[in-house]
Amino acid sequence: MSRSATASLAALGVNPASELTSTTTDHTTGRVLPVRGELAGLLPWGGLRAGSTVSVGGSTSLLLALLAGATADGCWAAVVGLPQVGVLAAAELGVSVQRLALVPRPGSDPGPVIAALLDGIDLVAVACPLPPSLARRLTARARQRRAVLIAFGSWPSADVELTAESVRWNSLDDGAETLRRQQISVRSGGRGSAGRPRHVLLTFGEEEIELPLVAGEPARSDEPADAGPDQVDELAARRATTQEQPA
């Protein structure tokens, strides 16, 4: 993983060594792309399995967070049909935006565009409504090309379905505080080994975030220059937490 990715995840309070899963290859599941550690518990393979389709509903932050681990690990992601996507939020959630491509308006015939993306992009998030027959063809295409298709909204043949049941922020203390910490309650389900329903409460980000300003250039080294050992410990202590909830 690049230093800049390490830096931006560390800035989010994610300890990469222990919390970010890494790309693994298993003879039963094939290649699995890494995700932020707190998301691993939601996915049956502990990451995004190449060739699978995952549907996400209810939260754009959840969609963006899913792209973070893999793009930080060198994978490419594309977001199709979501012109209002907040790229800055994506960066804050750990997405390496220099490997993020946006196709805001795929046109009246999005099929060939999405198919072309699946040919070469590791993660393709699709947010435009599609006829079920086309959706199934694209799922098959993703499987064939070993890409991960992330459907934002309902999808007829998803392997895993992630639904954000609520998105809550720290309460604003009238006129003083600011939004810092986001809690998303996610329910996961799906087919086969993904079928067992799970509930996870995700917490994203608490502290000041510095982002690399130029593509690929780390805004700071792995350890902030002005941070003494105490502050580093504090960062680790404040890192994003995962709580398993009873389903």
Partner: peptide, 19 residues
């Protein structure tokens, strides 16, 4: 793949963000 999509949608069809 991205050049292919630009071929389908035109150069402005694929955007990349700069912070």
């Amino acid at each position: 793949a991205l050049l292919h999509v630009q071929g389908l949608l035109g150069p402005d069809g694929v955007l990349t963000p700069v912070l």
